Computed example of a mutant assay.
Amino acid sequence: MTNLEAFMLALIQGLTEFLPVSSSAHLILPSAVLGWADQGLAFDVAVHVGTLLAVLGYFRKEVVQLLNAFFGSIFKKERSKDAMLAWMIVLATIPAGLFGLFVKAFDIVDLYLRSPWVIATTCIVFGALLWWVDRRASCQVNEYETTPKSALLIGLAQAMAIIPGTSRSGATMTAALYLGYTREAAARFSFLMSIPIIVLAGGLLSISLAKGEAPIMWEPMLIGVVVSFISAYLVIHWFLKLVTRVGMLPFVIYRILLGFGLVFFLSMHG
């Protein structure tokens, strides 16, 4: 991997991880369309670290409050809205964690789903679903009003995002909007619940990396961490300010254009 490829892939990861457009799709496409070599486990770990640092840094105040309330609810039996939200984030993480372990055990994604045709289909289908839900959203619920039922439903949507092209943030925001969340609350809950899932995914990748014997290229990894951190941090800040004003339509249009553009490309080169 060249430093230019590392920069571009890290930029793609940072720009798309928290937008409802699918980071996995954008990371798979360069190898499928441009013929780039697979970035490898070490680089995957690096960009996961970068995006994790970005969301932790942006929501540092909320994360500290949620952790304090979470442990306070365990050891001091305290009950607060922060403690409830923390438990709902944990509950929402369970479906994706279990489903992720299942598909990894049977290597389902790599064997059957890492296909440009799958990405094209999911980009279009889930983009249209996001548009339909966003148009009908009542936008009345905030993240602190999350119930166990809502958390599980949003968690199931997050589990579906293991399919490349679906988009973790897109699926969770779609589910939250369907349940009546405001657009900002849907985005904030999606971003907060990304923290444990990125930690889990990064941990599994790190274990696989530790078991391997491939040499690690430290310079591309450093580029991956720094570029993905900066771009992801800016995206979170920008998206939270923009989504309440313009809604999801720009991302819907982008997803559908990307999907049909990929279909055209694959048809021409099939």
Rank of each mutant, 00 (worst) to 15 (best):
A175P: 01
A176G: 12
L177M: 06
L177I: 02
Y178R: 12
G180E: 11
Y181K: 09
T182E: 15
T182Q: 13
R183T: 01
R183Q: 08
R183P: 12
R183V: 02
E184H: 09
E184W: 06
E184L: 13
A186H: 11
A187M: 02
R188H: 10
S190C: 15
S190R: 07
F191T: 10
F191W: 01
L192A: 05
M193L: 15
M193P: 01
M193E: 09
S194P: 09
P196H: 12
P196M: 10
I197V: 11
I198M: 09
L200S: 08
L200Y: 07
A201V: 14
A201M: 06
A201D: 13
G202H: 02
G202E: 05
G203M: 08
G203R: 13
G203K: 11
L204M: 06
L204K: 04
L204G: 07
L204P: 01
L204V: 11
L205Q: 14
S206W: 13
S206H: 07
S206L: 15
S206K: 14
I207T: 15
I207Y: 15
S208T: 12
S208Q: 14
S208K: 13
K211S: 12
K211I: 11
K211W: 05
G212T: 15
G212N: 12
G212L: 13
A214T: 13
P215C: 07
P215T: 04
I216N: 10
I216E: 04
M217W: 04
M217P: 14
M217E: 09
M221A: 05
L222Y: 00
L222K: 03
I223R: 06
G224F: 01
G224P: 02
G224R: 02
V225H: 00
V225M: 08
V226H: 03
V227T: 05
S228I: 03
F229V: 06
F229M: 06
I230D: 04
I230G: 04
Y233L: 03
V235C: 04
V235P: 00
V235S: 08
I236K: 00
I236P: 00
I236E: 00
I236S: 03
H237Q: 13
W238A: 14
F239Y: 07
L240I: 15
L240K: 02
K241W: 11
K241V: 11
V243F: 06
T244S: 15
T244W: 09
T244P: 15
R245T: 13
G247S: 05
M248H: 05
M248W: 09
